[in-house]
Simulated assay, not measured.
Amino acid sequence: MTHYNLKTLGYTTETAATLESNQIIGRISSQSKDIYKVLTDHGEGFAKISGKYFYEINSAEEYPAVGDFVTLNHYPDSDDFAIIQDVLPRKSTLTRQSAGNSTETQLIATNIDSIFICMSLNEDYNLRRLERYLAIAWDSGAMPYIVLTKSDLCSDIQARLAEISDIALGVDVILTTNAQKDGYATIQKHLHVGKTAAFIGSSGVGKSTIINHFIGDAHIETDGLRNDDKGHHTTTRRDLYVLPNDLGIVIDTPGMRELGVGNTDITKSYEDIEALAVQCKFNDCTHTTEPKCAVKAAIQTGELSKERFENYQKLQLEAQYGDMDARMIEQTKLNRMIGGKKALKQLRRQNQH
């Protein structure tokens, strides 16, 4: 049985806990329904949450998640389950809006130091989706990186890099390929012992292939390309792996093609638009009909793309609606429509005088 050093698992003073005599600390590496796989300095095994903890939970985010450090009342040396008594404070949380019409936030992983946003340079390439990933990555508290996979399949890499540089403000962009022996060398420079990296992206972009490269063994099932150059989706759950050679910890996540931002703070990922907005004549400028609007001027000159601004507005609305139910959302939309018409009439009256 493998035994883990807590510091190697990323345990720090930020997640320190006062333990009772019969408790130990573990880190959750995977979950299947209500059963958690936990890594500790005693070994690895399975655990469930205590009944007391279960009845004290008020939201889905309070459940243990992959990456969490937890206190356990004992560690199993047979087929018994350990009991999770508490989740230790999280230094970062990666979340997204649950699929469909739900307003609930889905917790993807916790205690992450860096997030590698993977996007392939073939049919999966999508700038607007990349902006969504950047928004939730910045909001998590971890440092984002953009990993462009399958670069050997792209005939115009420089044009792609230029497009991405316009939206990925302050984010390193890493080109990768599994067609070369050192195709993942740049990623390795960002992997460190005791640090946790999460890999996120759409299905089939090559996340699991990259992680398998660093694990040194094909622990994660992967498939090749389909006829349309898109990879097959294989990862169906979140899993944490301790890498050999002091390369730290990685978390593999399922592909997320639908990515709701919920109540995510998107200001960090749209700092360019936020900076333009403070230059507008009116503090409450909506960037639609108002005169001397710096945002509209930037779109007209080509400094800001219309598509990026429209996506910014869309994510703003999603973030505003994040904690609302369907009825509240419809009422807010109606209020916005009425308010916008009133503002337009008022502006027209002002211009007549």
Rank of each mutant, 00 (worst) to 15 (best):
K7R: 15
Y11M: 14
T13K: 15
T15R: 15
T18L: 14
S21L: 10
R27Q: 09
I28C: 06
Q31S: 03
S32D: 09
K33S: 11
I35N: 03
I35R: 08
Y36W: 04
L39A: 03
G45P: 02
F46H: 08
I49S: 06
K52T: 09
Y55H: 13
I57E: 03
N58C: 02
S59H: 08
A60F: 04
E61L: 10
E62M: 09
D68F: 04
F69Q: 09
N73S: 12
H74Q: 10
D79S: 14
F81T: 05
A82L: 06
A82K: 04
D86L: 05
K91D: 07
T93K: 13
S98T: 13
A99R: 14
E104P: 02
L107A: 00
L107S: 01
A109W: 07
N111L: 10
D113I: 08
D124G: 05
R128V: 02
R128F: 01
L130H: 01
E131D: 15
R132G: 08
Y133A: 11
I136N: 06
D139N: 15
G141N: 12
A142M: 11
A142V: 07
Y145N: 09
I146Q: 08
I146W: 05
K150Q: 07
D152A: 06
C154S: 14
C154W: 03
S155Y: 03
R160L: 03
R160S: 12
I164T: 08
I167D: 05
L169H: 12
G170V: 07
V173Q: 08
L175A: 08
L175H: 08
Q180S: 13
D182P: 07
H190F: 14
L191E: 13
K195M: 12
T196N: 11
A198G: 07
A198D: 07
I200R: 00
I200F: 00
S202C: 01
V205P: 04
G206C: 10
T209H: 00
I211E: 06
N212G: 12
D217G: 03
H219D: 06
I220V: 06
R226I: 00
D229C: 04
K230P: 01
H232V: 13
T234A: 10
T236K: 14
L240I: 07
Y241D: 05
V242H: 09
L243H: 11
I249A: 11
T253P: 09
T253E: 04
P254K: 11
R257G: 06
V261T: 15
I266C: 01
T267K: 13
E271L: 05
D272N: 13
E274W: 00
A277G: 00
Q279R: 11
K281P: 02
F282R: 02
D284R: 14
C285H: 03
P291F: 08
P291S: 10
K292E: 14
A294L: 01
A297P: 02
A297Y: 04
A298E: 04
Q300I: 02
T301V: 10
G302T: 06
E307D: 14
E307M: 12
E310Q: 15
Y312S: 01
Q316Y: 00
Q316D: 01
E318P: 11
G322K: 02
M328C: 03
I329N: 09
E330P: 04
Q331L: 14
Q331H: 13
Q331A: 14
K333L: 15
G339D: 13
G340T: 11
K341Y: 13
A343W: 02
L344C: 03
K345P: 01
Q346V: 09
Q346M: 11
R348F: 04
R348Q: 15
